[in-house]
Amino acid sequence: MKRKLTEEMEHDFFFVHESIVYGVLRKCGIRFNHPDYDDYVQIGLLKLVEAYETFPEDLCQEAYFYQFTGYAFQKIRWGIIDEMRKAIKNAERETLIGEALDRSVPEEGVESDSDWLVWELMPTMLKYLTPNEQQYLRDAAIDQLSITDIAKKHNVSRKTVYEWRKKTAIKLAHFKAVLKS
């Protein structure tokens, strides 16, 4: 059953059920001093409305009112946990990227002869790639998107993106050999 939360009911609905969101946040260990607290509150409120719209029973009956509370709590909890997982995954990705960048920065006083060569060869390298492979390289190297995010961005399957990656690696292997010599 799909119902809509009307503007007339909105104020009363949130007055009665908004505390569920704060209960979920407390249960998940997200306190008011958390840097993303307001974002999590908004996510919780959106999930609360989603729970209202998808709850299968009639909320006008008192027996289903309490069932809705449990249903909404669980739906909000799952949504918050999903967002927490995404935040952890992004933080790990940023840490890995930071570590990789730290390793790639040469020590002071040591010039990296291959850096200028890479930038000189970049336009030539891109000419060997198809437009999709060029876009994959930009998305993966510059925008730091995951395979899944690239697939969603271009409305293709993950398998297709893996193929782009494989073909890009094969075509650029020649330049890697030039850089090493």
Results as ranks from 00 to 15, higher is better:
Asp113Leu: 09
Gly23His: 14
Arg31Tyr: 05
Val156Glu: 07
Thr124Gln: 06
Glu10Lys: 08
Ile76Met: 04
Arg93Ala: 13
Gly29Ser: 10
Ile150Lys: 00
Met1Gln: 06
Phe15Asn: 00
Asn90Val: 15
Ala63His: 15
Lys159Thr: 07
Leu121Gln: 08
Gln144His: 06
Phe13Lys: 03
Leu179Thr: 06
Asp115Cys: 10
His174Phe: 11
Ile80Tyr: 03
Lys171Ala: 09
Ile76Tyr: 01
Leu126Gln: 03
Glu108Leu: 15
Ala169His: 15
Glu8Ser: 02
Glu8Met: 06
Val178Asp: 03
Leu117Trp: 01
Gln135Ser: 12
Pro35Asp: 03
Gln134Cys: 08
His34Pro: 05
Glu133Asp: 07
Asp12Arg: 07
Ile170Asp: 10
Ser146Gly: 04
Leu25His: 11
Leu25Ala: 05
Tyr66Thr: 13
His11Leu: 06
Thr168Tyr: 02
Lys47Gly: 08
Val41Leu: 08
Tyr37His: 06
Val110Ala: 00
Ala63Leu: 14
Pro131Leu: 05
Gly29Trp: 09
Ile76Cys: 04
Ala169Arg: 15
Phe55Lys: 08
Ala169Ser: 12
Leu45Phe: 14
Glu120Lys: 12
Glu7Gly: 10
Lys171Arg: 14
Glu18Lys: 12
Ser146Lys: 00
Pro131His: 01
Asn90Arg: 15
Lys166Thr: 09
Thr6Asn: 03
Ala173Lys: 14
Phe65Val: 05
Arg26Tyr: 13
Phe13Val: 06
Arg138Asn: 04
Lys27Gly: 11
Glu10Asn: 00
Glu53Cys: 06
Arg31Lys: 11
Pro56Trp: 02
Glu120Trp: 03
Leu45His: 13
Ala72Leu: 08
Tyr64Gln: 07
Tyr162Thr: 04
Tyr52Glu: 02
Asn155Glu: 09
Gly23Tyr: 09
Gln144Ser: 03
Met122Tyr: 14
Lys180Cys: 01
Val178Trp: 01
Met125Ile: 00
Phe175Asp: 03
Arg77Val: 02
Trp116Arg: 07
Ile88Gln: 05
Glu111Gln: 10
Glu111Asp: 07
Ala63Pro: 04
Tyr128Cys: 00
Lys176Leu: 14
Leu59Arg: 00
Lys171Tyr: 06
Met1Ile: 11
Tyr64Glu: 07
Lys153Tyr: 04
Thr6Trp: 06
His34Gln: 04
Leu172Val: 06
Met1Ser: 13
Gln42Lys: 15
Gln144Ala: 05
Trp119Leu: 11
Ser146Gln: 02
Val41Arg: 01
Tyr52Phe: 14
Asn132Val: 07
Ala169Trp: 09
Tyr22Cys: 01
Glu120Pro: 00
Ile142Ser: 00
Ala100Glu: 02
Phe68Lys: 02
Lys180Gln: 01
Gln135Trp: 09
Glu50Ala: 14
Val21Arg: 04
Ala141His: 04
Ile30Trp: 02
His17Phe: 15
Tyr162Ile: 11
Val178Arg: 11
Glu62Ala: 15
Ile170Arg: 09
Asp115Arg: 15
Leu121Met: 15
Val178Met: 10
Ala141Met: 10
Lys47Phe: 11
Glu10Val: 01
Trp116Ser: 09
Gly70Gln: 08
Glu53Lys: 10
Gly109Pro: 05
Glu62Trp: 14
Lys152Ala: 06
Lys159Asn: 02
Ile20Pro: 05
Gln42Ser: 13
Asn33Val: 04
Lys27Glu: 13
Glu50Trp: 05
Tyr162Leu: 14
Glu7Tyr: 02
His17Val: 01
Ala169Gly: 12
Trp116Phe: 11
Ile81Thr: 10
Arg158Ile: 03
Asp139Pro: 03
